[in-house]
Design a protein around this nucleic acid. Structure first.
Length: 210
DNA sequence: AAGTAACG
DNA sequence: GAAT
């Protein structure tokens, strides 16, 4: 298989602790296309509300697209080739893949796109994305819908943190030395975006899982 | 602790 | 925001 050179990377609007932020990366039309594509994803692989490995419900609802999807239950955090309800994961939409191609700087494609839906009041505690096999590969994150307060910590628990508001169309890359940085979502700003008819926020994270 | 909450 |  011939290796395809990665695109030259666009310039980040902001770097925080090694995390690259591309604010306003997606125009409104592209965001709308993505939301339409995601309707098909959710129709094929319904959102579910996972539990942490200690059995507590997370406040986000999630599903995945790609060869594997991220799942969580008392058996732990892992990537699985099928949805907890038994069906396969649908393919990652082209509109989403094009973002990876633009900013990942990788010669591989993602094999998982985790789709997280944050309703009003949903949060995600500080955590690392560490269930993948190769930490040389970045994680690319897309924000759609309501603004969210994103918090960035350190490579280990504890210490000072920094926060920044993410808005619809922002793209963020955790790679290199920042690949394993702790991060999370503290809160939404309800009603701040009209992209999603029923409000809330969608976060897409593309990963190379294996 | 991919959670929650008390406390500063 | 830090600590548990």
């Amino acid at each position: 298989m011939k290796k395809v050179p990665a695109e030259p990377l666009p310039r980040a609007t902001l770097e925080i602790r090694g995390v690259s932020l591309y604010q306003g990366f997606l125009d409104r039309e592209t965001q709308e296309q993505m939301v339409e594509d995601l309707r098909a994803v959710v129709a094929a692989a319904p959102l579910f509300q996972p539990e942490t490995r200690r059995g507590q419900k997370m406040s986000v609802r999630m599903t995945s697209a790609g060869k594997v999807g991220w799942v969580s239950d008392r058996r732990g955090y892992r990537y699985e080739p099928s949805h907890p309800q038994g069906m396969g994961w649908p393919p990652i939409p082209a509109s989403v893949l094009s973002v990876w191609n633009a900013v990942a700087g990788s010669d591989r494609g993602p094999d998982c796109c985790l789709v997280n839906y944050y309703g009003e009041g949903a949060r995600m505690g500080l955590h690392q994305d560490r269930d993948e096999a190769d930490f040389e590969q970045p994680v690319v994150s897309i924000s759609l819908g309501d603004d969210a307060l994103f918090r960035i910590g350190n490579l280990t628990r504890g210490g000072k943190t920094e926060s920044i508001w993410l808005t619809s169309g922002d793209v963020l890359v955790m790679g290199g030395a920042a690949r394993l940085v702790y991060h999370g979502i503290d809160r939404l700003r309800p009603g701040s975006s009209a992209l999603l008819p029923n409000g809330g926020r969608i976060n897409l994270t593309m990963r190379v899982a294996r």
